[in-house]
Design a protein around this nucleic acid. Structure first.
Lengths: 222, 222
DNA sequence: ACGTTGATTCAACGACTGTAGAATGACTTG
DNA sequence: CAAGTCATTCTACAGTCGTTGAATCAACGT
């Protein structure tokens, strides 16, 4: 329907297109309604194919889910510690600006699906945990990484899932502005000695991004 | 099991007991597996009754869910603004310490169940939103309330649902210690360096270059 | 003793699910 | 053109779900 299916296409190509279409619908449905409520039949219907075809391609609903939520996070590159918080913030901002479909599928399913929960955990660990842990180290580092991860996922959940009043339509920049002191205070080692707020404005937002990310975004044909 | 069911009990009393037992199991299952995966049959089995009885009492699964997750939050009392953040923190700490069963049921179901999501939203709005909104007011207040709510729910989700490494076993006090500057920086009006700054407290703003940070150890626990 | 009420169970229906295997039909290769 | 391959569909099964209406059994007022 999207592409004219009147003239012949190479088989492999056609299969790839169909798979891609199925994955797109699956991601969409998983992100909207979570794992349980997303039925293979609905995915198939959305993709305009037979449910059995989805099974034939992905083997099981579980596999389809795994393929749909596969996220390949580019890791937050290591760099000077002072910019650590800003780098994490930039990462979060990028997620708040981009289309959160894949992330949403993860978030929405992470509570009922162990595989999704582990994926979220791994992603957070890679993004926040490892970096912060390396920078700070020890048990305190782990705790700080956890708090950082919690704040990150909290903002995502609040904005996209819960759609909290002041968050769902807010400008990511403003959110970042509010979050920056928080992240800094958690990352900074010596922040726990001083109870007062430290509005560290040492760095403007690292708009250039830490590293070139030649990531191409797959768009859905619609 | 607690009371011997060998001798007769008044009808109303017995019904009440059964209802209470059903609700307990329902809450437990909803919190463990969420709305969809919790079946009326499982609840009935857990309570030692027939599934039809659950239906007879609560009318539908939807109603049972509503009755199970009903939360009566005591509102955060109004008070001096300076302590606002601390009051919210205390609230969160109390939740982190207490048994989170009811909250968990909410959290775990809020993603797939609109009713649960609305309940969470209402609770957050009451606890964070309204108070902070009143204290700050306007659109900025709404945003700050949203961020505050996001952080709160993020910590809950990270600790109980995601069970993040550094968070699940952490001492609530330590989490609070890390969160306090964050909450303060979000609540405080002048945290974003307003022109008409009204320093309710000493605000040094020492953003001078701390590049020569004492770098004693860069410990890295394996 | 009675009949009545209400708590509780039994058995079953209809809908929906994930999944499997045979069948169809278009594209490819000889 | 014939045979083969592969994407795709059709049909169906076995299971589970929420829900229902009739049936059971104990407690109650008379």
């Amino acid at each position: 329907m999207t592409t004219t299916d009147a003239f012949p296409v190479a088989k492999g190509e056609r299969r790839h297109q169909t798979e891609e279409r199925i994955l797109g619908v699956a991601r969409e449905l998983f992100s909207e309604t979570g794992y349980d409520r997303t039925t293979i039949r609905a995915v198939a219907a959305g993709a305009g194919v037979d449910p059995a075809l989805v099974m034939h391609y992905f083997g099981s609903k579980e596999n389809l889910f795994g393929a749909a939520i596969r996220v390949d996070m580019e890791d937050v590159v290591v760099g000077p510690e002072e910019e650590l918080a800003d780098r994490l913030l930039a990462k979060l901002e990028q997620k708040l600006e981009g289309e959160p479909e894949a992330q949403l599928a993860l978030l929405r399913s992470m509570l009922t699906h162990d595989q999704a929960a582990e994926a979220v955990r791994a992603a957070l660990r890679r993004e926040c945990g490892q970096v912060v842990g390396n920078a700070i180290g020890g048990e305190a580092g782990s705790l700080r990484a956890g708090v950082l991860s919690a704040m990150t996922v909290g903002v995502m959940v609040g904005r996209y899932l819960l759609q909290l009043e002041g968050l769902k339509d807010a400008d990511p920049k403003e959110i970042m502005e509010l979050l920056r002191p928080c992240f800094h205070s958690v990352v900074d080692r010596d922040a726990e000695t001083r109870k007062t707020v430290r509005p560290s404005r040492s760095k403007p937002a690292p708009e250039a991004g830490p590293k070139a990310r030649p990531r191409s975004k797959r768009g859905r044909a619609g």
